[in-house]
C-alpha cells in the first residue's frame, strides 16, 4: 500500500477515535487535554499535505497554547461538566440537519486535489511563479500572508488584540480591585 495513504488513514482513524472520546468524556480536564491531542493529529495531517506553515500553527496554537489557556479557564470554572437539562433528541436533530446541510454544500465542490479547481487557477499561479520576482523571499506562504494579503493579516492581528481587550475587560477589573 502507498505509505501516504497508510499515514493518512491512521491519522484520520485516530482523529475519529479522539472525537468519540471527546464526546463521551464528562471531565472537562480530560476534554481540554484530548482537544490538544486532536490538534496535534490534525497538525500531522497538514504535514502530509505539505502545508508545514499551517501544521506549525496548529501544533503551536491548537495543541500548545490553547490547551494551557483552556486549563487555566477550567481552573476558574471547575472540572466537571454540568448536566444538560435538555433531552437528547433535539441536539441530535440539530446536528443531523447541520451535517446534512454541510454535506449538501460540498456536493458542488471540485474533487479533492483537483488541479483545475478555481482555487488553483485564480491568483495562486501568479503567487507561485511571480513572488520570487516581486517579493524576493523563498517562502511563498510568508509572501502571501505578509505582503499580498497584508490587509487580512492586519485584520487577524486586530482579532487577537480584541480578544485580549475582552479578557482584560472581563477579568482585569476584578483582578485590579483585589490588588488594592
Amino acid at each position: 500500500m502507498d505509505i501516504a495513504i497508510l499515514v493518512n488513514f491512521s491519522l484520520l482513524t485516530l482523529m475519529m477515535l479522539v472525537v468519540v472520546v471527546l464526546i463521551r468524556l464528562k471531565s472537562l480536564l480530560g476534554v481540554a487535554l484530548t482537544n490538544g491531542i486532536y490538534s496535534l493529529l490534525s497538525a500531522g495531517l497538514f504535514v502530509t499535505m505539505d502545508a508545514v506553515d499551517v501544521a506549525f500553527t496548529e501544533a503551536a496554537v491548537g495543541a500548545g497554547i490553547t490547551t494551557v489557556l483552556l486549563l487555566g479557564t477550567i481552573a476558574v470554572t471547575g472540572m466537571e461538566q454540568t448536566v444538560s437539562r435538555h433531552g437528547k433528541f433535539l441536539p441530535l436533530v440539530v446536528i443531523f440537519i447541520t451535517g446534512a446541510a454541510l454535506i449538501y454544500g460540498t456536493l458542488d465542490m471540485p474533487p479533492f486535489g483537483d488541479p483545475k479547481a478555481p482555487i488553483h487557477t485564480h491568483v495562486a499561479p501568479h503567487y507561485l511563479t511571480e513572488s520570487t520576482n516581486e517579493i524576493g523571499i523563498p517562502n511563498v506562504v510568508t509572501s502571501v500572508l505578509a505582503s499580498y494579503r497584508g490587509y487580512d493579516t492586519l485584520g487577524e492581528v486586530i482579532v487577537i488584540f480584541t480578544a485580549a481587550i475582552g479578557v482584560l475587560l472581563l477579568l482585569g477589573k476584578t483582578v485590579g480591585k483585589r490588588n488594592k
Binding site: 494551557v68 489557556l69 487555566g72 479557564t73 481552573a75 476558574v76 480578544a163 485580549a164 479578557v167 482584560l168 477579568l171 482585569g172 476584578t174 483582578v175 483585589r178
Partner: peptide, 8 residues
C-alpha cells in the same frame, strides 16, 4: 490572558 486567569 495567562496572567489574568492565573491571578483570577
Amino acid at each position: 490572558i495567562f496572567y489574568l486567569l492565573d491571578e483570577f
